[in-house]
Design a binder for these strands. Structure first.
Lengths: 336, 336
DNA sequence: GGGTGACGTCGAAGCGCTTCGACGGGGGAC
DNA sequence: GTCCCCCGTCGAAGCGCTTCGACGTCACCC
């Protein structure tokens, strides 16, 4: 293994000069720098991570805690993880993978052993048991998702409220006057995360603001439930021409059900959804949708962490604006 | 931060004694051990990872390189990653996540900086450019998948050949005499990984061994292609009663096509597949299938690595036996 | 022309841990 | 009873790097 003293000898300087050349923490003359850099290249020097962490009290590693819970969207998590790693590398950091299974003990471990400099925690619940620990730890952290009480933490996620609004605005702009939100199973609304409620909020308020008639319908994640909701909707809201679906599992069955009930999409009914793009694209009728911007969330999370590590101020909460992708499932309301 | 000297002082011993208590590398009397352990607990001591890595030249971290290539099955990768992390923790190791994007340079970096002790490389291609590097590096590594020339490397994967065989044996045992393999798109067979060919091999040989008539049909990953293959099969092999599908994307369209052509599954046609269990389970007719045992692969990979790190011998190649899960899509051949 | 910084570099002191050699004491072998 | 060896423990020497204080040199100012 080639070490810093080897480089120093080869370049005819002291080890500290090599160190300063690398870190830029003190001025080094152009010639010396050139000589040192040449030596580094020639010898293939790579500083030892452990030694660096020990002396510099920075490991240049950040921990990423991924969820395991049933019901999480695996491809979204994966895309997110990859974007975190990529963004981290751009900031000269590596990423240690932790599973949620390790829980608070895992967080404490990597923090106490100084294995990592910072934490990214995904899938944060409203009353996440890890919150007190994260507040107490002196490591900077960023969480994906919003707990009930985000003060003193740094949180980031899609702005679900705005997502609900944008869907409605889109339908309103197309002339639709009666809209419905077909949501997640009832238990989701009383549960650990608040994003489902936020979508409802945004949906309802935007509808009111635009003078639309609107209703909200939770729906179990089964084709049968989808069918039932569709039938009920037709019965109770015959004037309905626009729906927002926030329930990936029933998006396809729902469209099938509507079409079997004689409603053409988008001819008679415009459909928008909150779901991953892959799903929206690959349906028989590609669906106008808003996706969770997993890549952007990952990048921004790393960026926030980097700023915190540098001692710069960061906002407590950042809500990413939704981006609606128009596809074949929405159209101007026919005036027939 | 509490350090080893704090513990030593508190327990009235020397730092080296604390170290030996922790590592077990030298005998420590029961009383001393108890005293030290109590001090550790009381003070909440956690050894500094960097210091440990520096002094002990072991970081207790292993790198996991995940693929990004289009066409990989994300949930499978994710499940695999999680099982690696879990297994690694059981061996007191942490896991650093690398993306394939970083390529050979990334491997070299984590190796040269001594950030990690060992490597797990997923999605290894037949002529993977990383192979020479992995051979040259003095870090132990395990690869998921088999390159063309696995000598000197440690590889693990599902035994695809046996998987092909098992499907045929299952059909043969049910009395089927004419079988077909519906495979991946043609390009897969001339491409980077060999597993597709191995399935064909196993399929063909098992068919011959059992005296079955058999044929192999590559198939593009589109519903239209599925339909075409189904029609062709009916025309050319009217006596066909069993198929093996090794192409996730067309499994559902294929079954649809067969049923639309008047063949009932499993009444007239038994279907087995190589695909993830989730897919097999959630089809209209749940399909008898063999899945890639991602969890097991992950565990075994970590185990192999642990043995290598301990200097123990490991086999160059380990092929995990396929496990066929019987579902509703296969039945005894009707003698009608 | 001497004082004063700023610049560029060096030496040495750690960072917290592991490990090697050494050493005292007690038990077994003779 | 003596010798030897092994058990249990200690002290000290690093592991490879960062960083702090110090120092020499040169340019510039009054």
């Amino acid at each position: 293994m080639v070490k810093i003293t080897d480089v120093a000898r080869h370049a005819g300087v002291s080890p500290s000069t090599v160190s300063y050349t690398l870190s830029g923490k003190r001025p080094i003359s152009a010639e010396t720098r050139a000589r040192v850099e040449e030596s580094i290249r020639e010898l293939g020097y790579r500083p030892h991570a452990g030694a660096r962490a020990l002396a510099g009290s920075r490991s240049n590693v950040l921990a990423l805690v991924v969820p395991l819970r049933a019901g999480i969207n695996v491809p979204v998590v994966m895309r997110f993880a990859v974007s975190v790693v990529t963004a981290a590398r751009a900031h000269d950091q590596d990423v240690l993978l932790l599973t949620q299974e390790e829980g608070e003990e895992g967080l404490r471990r990597v923090a106490d052993t100084a294995l990592v400099d910072a934490l990214i925690v995904m899938d944060v619940q409203l009353h996440d048991p890890r919150l007190p620990l994260l507040r107490a730890l002196d490591l900077p952290s960023v969480m994906i998702g919003f707990p009930a009480e985000p003060a003193g933490l740094t949180c980031i996620d899609l702005d679900f409220r705005a997502a609900g609004e944008v869907c409605v605005e889109h339908l309103a702009a197309l002339g639709h006057r009666v809209v419905a939100l077909i949501g997640s199973p009832p238990e989701v609304y009383v549960r650990q995360t608040a994003f489902a409620q936020r979508v409802v909020q945004g949906f309802t308020e935007a509808a009111a603001r635009n003078g639309l008639r609107s209703s909200v319908h939770p729906c179990e994640a089964t084709p049968a439930a989808a069918r039932t909701v569709a039938e009920q909707l037709l019965r109770e809201q015959p004037a309905l021409t626009g729906v927002v679906v926030h329930n990936e599992a029933v998006l396809e069955p729902l469209i099938d059900a509507f079409e079997q009930l004689g409603l053409r999409v988008p001819g008679d009914l415009s459909v928008t959804a909150l779901c991953p793009d892959e799903l929206a694209e690959h349906l028989r009728v590609p669906v106008t949708s808003i996706a969770i911007p997993s890549t952007e969330v990952g990048e921004r999370a790393v960026e926030l962490l980097t700023r915190k590590l540098a001692g710069l101020p960061v906002p407590d909460t950042t809500r990413l604006p939704p981006r609606l992708t128009e596809r074949a499932s929405t159209a101007r309301r026919s005036l027939a």
